[in-house]
């Protein structure tokens, strides 16, 4: 063993220092300093490429306390965007204090970055039930809370964005997330989902806010590397209810392909978007576009009748208009 400490083969393409990461599909090795610089610039390019938002827009970032959302917030601030956070307290404990520790991670992050604004919506305080409690009560959540949880998060994010006058809602979804969903939808030929899956979902209805995924061209590994290099102490544990099993299986399968043929994941996702944008492939909703009507309580669009699926969790038939609005109350104390 004649190799000496410090003699390493991978050097930063920009400065020649020891690289902290090698991205095979980009054929790019970078040191910590240049990796951060590259990552931030690349996010900007994704924002521009898909016309996500500009510096005049106000952005609401959905913050879970995990690596993706905290890194996204960190990058947007450094790029000079007006980005506020939204944390939804799901009340998930399950013996590992999941929600509590997620919020702690967010507070640590904010303590090092004074001046940030975080909106917190706590399920228990606002609606009287945590996600696990809600799941036990409703048919929708029986067994697994992920269905009511996803529904609640979508609704609350949208409501806070509207009340706060935000132009877009940004989430930390990375390329592995998107490629796993695409893989799953392709295997099952879910044409409706294939028609819609996108880095940008425009506000197609007055009750909806535009949604964007600025990290959609980063591998999950790259986001984790960014968080590590930036010293972001994110919530490392998974939600104990993680519906992960299937998502993780697809991610692992894609990573096996990736290890054999670098760039596979990247091309699978980005070429899908390109081909669809150019009209080389088209998908249609079964039975055409669904008819959307505003929910009578929250005004968010729904296909389900006069109450949306979220309001139906809280509004009972005996409630009058007033009581219904109390059951699904405004979320921001001082609307912007």
């Amino acid at each position: 063993m004649s190799r000496k400490k410090g003699r390493k083969s991978l050097r930063c393409k920009k400065c020649g220092q020891t690289a902290v990461i090698y991205m095979r599909h980009h054929r790019l090795a970078l040191c910590d300093h240049h990796y951060v610089e590259w990552f931030i610039n690349y996010t900007q390019r994704t924002i521009d490429k898909y016309k996500m938002f500009t510096r005049r827009n106000r952005i609401l970032v959905a913050i879970s306390g995990g690596k993706d959302s905290l890194s996204l917030w960190d990058v947007l601030i450094q790029l000079g965007y007006q980005a506020d956070g939204l944390y939804i307290g799901l009340g998930i404990d399950e013996g590992i204090q999941y929600s509590e520790r997620s919020l702690e991670a967010i507070h640590r992050f904010m303590a090092e970055r004074p001046g940030l604004t975080l909106h917190v919506v706590d399920m228990k305080e606002t609606y009287g039930e945590t996600i696990p409690e809600l799941a036990l009560r409703t048919r929708r959540g029986r067994g697994k809370p992920c269905s009511v949880c996803g529904l609640s998060k979508r609704h609350i994010m949208n409501q806070v964005a509207r009340e706060g006058g935000y132009d877009v809602l940004a989430t930390g979804h990375n390329l592995d997330d998107e490629a796993a969903v695409l893989f799953q939808n392709t295997l099952h030929w879910q044409t409706g989902y294939l028609a819609r899956q996108s880095p940008v979902l425009e506000a197609t209805h007055p009750g909806l806010v535009k949604k964007v995924k600025p990290f959609c061209r980063f591998y999950e590994r790259e986001v984790a590397a960014y968080a590590l290099v930036r010293g972001i102490e994110y919530q490392y544990d998974e939600c104990p209810f993680s519906e992960g099993a299937t998502t993780i299986l697809y991610k692992e399968l894609l990573n096996q392909l990736e290890a054999q043929a670098p760039g596979t994941k990247f091309q699978f996702y980005t070429q899908f978007l390109n081909a669809r944008e150019k009209g080389q492939i088209t998908f249609h909703e079964k039975g055409g576009e669904p008819v959307l009507r505003p929910c009578r309580v929250c005004e968010q669009p729904t296909t389900a009748g006069d109450l949306c699926a979220f309001c139906r969790l809280w509004v009972t038939p005996d409630m009058d208009e007033e009581a219904a609005r109390m059951a699904v109350p405004p979320l921001l104390a001082t609307p912007a």
Binding site: R3, K5, R7, K8, A62, S64, G66, K67, D68, S69, C146, C149, T171, G172, H173, D176, D177, E220, R221, V223, A224, A225, L228, E238, C239, F241, S242, E243, G244, A245, T247, I248, K251, E252, N255
Partner: peptide, 19 residues
């Protein structure tokens, strides 16, 4: 190169959802 007596921590990068 991993040297003798190095302690290497591996960080899992894949998560299952719930962001």
């Amino acid at each position: 190169i991993v040297e003798e007596e190095d302690v290497i921590k591996l960080v899992a990068v894949i998560s299952g959802g719930g962001r």
